[in-house]
Design a protein around this nucleic acid. Structure first.
Length: 485
RNA sequence: GUCCCCAUCGUCUAGUGGCCUAGGACGGCGGCCUCUCACGCCGCUAACAGGGGUUCAAACCCCCUUGGGGACGCCA
């Protein structure tokens, strides 16, 4: 039997319909397909299922492609559009028609709707009755001749249950009665989902279909189609769905984040991919990965979980913060170089200083935005204080004077070493007769304007001596009061 | 309603009949570090849904119950 070990290399695909933005549920499927293809030395393909003319938009298509590229999920072959391959689907349907494996159906929407309501009232499954399947050859020719609008349906009457070995779930059995004759070609000439999927997966050489378990019954339909077309079906693997903390279907407010929203929140793409893959059980959360390739190497398809996965935003955020703190600071430095306004004091810092600043501040931030908001602690030209802080500073005047004096002994342009800072703090602490909070807190306040932040000794090494003294002088002359409190 | 799938700490999971007194991660709680917040480190917490079988032995195999999810479109 084929399984993740004996099969492969896997040619996988992600096949979204361009009808909206990608959310975490969709993306999980894409990531799993991508990692599996990479891990097995196969290929990851991308196909846009834009056969619904009413709902598909170019804006959605662009957003999807953009989101995938943000995640780093580039396909190995050009993106395929189903809307560009209509003749292929049509030819396939004609073949099935000729072999009497499909038939035209002239039932109208209202007729079908009435049937469904009747079935519901009778507590029967809402399925197509197969009325048009029984039409005689002459009746068919006559109606076709009249140019009546019609769909083409597949004769799905199978006497045996449809069985297949799902690579994640194991043996699956779908009863032959689970669905009726389904539509292959709509009355507007466009293919239905099931037809297009089968034709394209065959044509693209896809050998593993990995998708959400909401497609389980579609799989049975598709297997029937493969048989009708004398083609061996690919392997199938169905993962559980993403659900909210209550176990309900993921809704907007329960964490159905879209990728644009993830970007807005400052989440790291690698964190999103790792989180989603680990939610499926196929990747550990403990270690961090440097790249998607790294992740693919560690990816274990055997561990893919069968059940649903509960979306936990806090866990995603915490993973993202870890990723953010672990990456090389130069990327962040470069981003700040480009995005901070030209007159921002940031640009007056030298390269080493900028790196040190980022490394230090990052410990208190979980993403770029938070880091950016901490920057003024160090770079602001003028600090402002609350009345309460000013009281504390006034009381600490002797201490601050001692600090200023001690700083005067150092080169104005230089930055202090950690050791020098430690010695200096000890010295002025003794001089002013204070220690602990009474020593550190006023200094932090005076130098940053904030009551909390990164380690004080690191802080003192980050600014050149003259800047430190400027700040102390500023508050002893006339500090800015923050009236907002 | 019918059919399908799923069921281990709060969450993601390890577990494929004896290595299970059920392991890890995240969270929570406590502590250490510490001027603060965060990071980091240490410790603790907490689960086999219930009931029947099979077996010398069951988290693991079978059945039932319960709970959850999904599917039943000229959407994908």
């Amino acid at each position: 039997m084929t399984n993740f070990k004996t099969g492969g290399p896997w040619i996988t695909r992600f096949a979204p319909s361009p009808t909206g933005v990608l959310h975490l549920g969709n993306v999980r499927t894409a990531i799993l397909n991508h990692l599996l293809a990479r891990q097995s030395g196969g290929k990851f393909l991308l196909r846009l299922e834009d056969t619904d003319q009413e709902r598909s938009t170019f804006a959605a298509e662009a957003a999807i492609l953009w989101s995938l590229s943000w995640l780093g999920l580039a396909p190995d072959e050009p993106v395929r559009h189903q809307s560009l391959r209509l003749p292929l689907y049509r030819r396939t349907v004609e073949r099935l028609l000729a072999e009497d494996k499909a038939y035209p159906c002239f039932c109208t929407d209202t007729e079908l709707e009435r049937e469904r309501q009747q079935a519901a009232a009778d507590n029967l499954p809402p399925r197509y009755s197969g009325r048009c399947a029984k039409l005689s050859k002459d009746e068919r020719i006559e109606r076709l001749g009249q140019g009546l609008p019609h769909t083409v349906r597949f004769r799905s009457t199978s006497e045996a249950d449809i069985r297949f070995a799902d690579l994640i779930k194991g043996e699956i059995s779908v009863p032959a009665t689970a669905f009726g004759d389904f539509v292959l070609l709509r009355s507007n000439g466009w293919p239905s989902y099931n037809l297009a999927v089968v034709v394209d997966d065959m044509d693209m050489g896809v050998n593993l279909v990995l998708r959400g378990e909401d497609h389980l019954t579609n799989t049975a339909r598709q297997i029937l189609l493969y048989r009708a077309l004398d083609h061996i079906p690919p392997s199938f693997a169905h993962h559980g769905l993403l659900v909210d903390p209550e176990g309900k279907k993921l809704s907007k407010r329960s964490g159905a984040l879209s990728i644009p929203e993830c970007i807005e929140m400052g989440l790291k793409p690698l964190a999103v991919t790792q989180f989603l893959a680990s939610l499926s059980g196929a990747l550990p959360t403990k270690s961090l990965f440097a790249s998607l390739e790294d992740m693919a190497r560690a990816f274990n398809p055997f561990a893919l979980g069968r059940g649903n996965a509960v979306m936990n935003i806090e866990e995603l955020k915490s993973l993202s913060a870890r990723v953010f703190r672990a990456e090389d600071p130069s990327g962040v430095v470069a981003t700040l170089d480009q995005t901070l306004s030209e007159d921002d004091p940031w640009h007056s810092l030298d390269e080493q200083n900028r790196r040190d600043l980022v490394s230090s501040l990052r410990e208190n931030a979980s993403n770029l935005e938070e880091l950016r908001s901490l920057l003024p602690h160090f770079t602001a030209r003028e600090l402002s204080f609350t009345p309460r802080s000013m009281t504390e500073l006034a009381q600490s005047r002797p201490l601050l004077a001692a600090l200023d004096q001690a700083l005067a002994a150092h080169q104005p342009e230089s930055r202090l070493s950690k050791e020098a800072v430690a010695a200096l703090l000890r010295q002025i602490g003794e001089q002013a007769g204070v220690k602990g909070r009474l020593l550190y807190h006023p200094i932090r306040l005076a130098l940053t304007g904030f009551e909390s932040g990164s380690e004080l000794t690191a802080l003192l090494t980050l600014l050149p001596v003259n800047r430190l003294r400027e700040r102390i002088t500023a508050i002893t002359i006339f500090p800015h009061c923050n009236h907002k409190e």
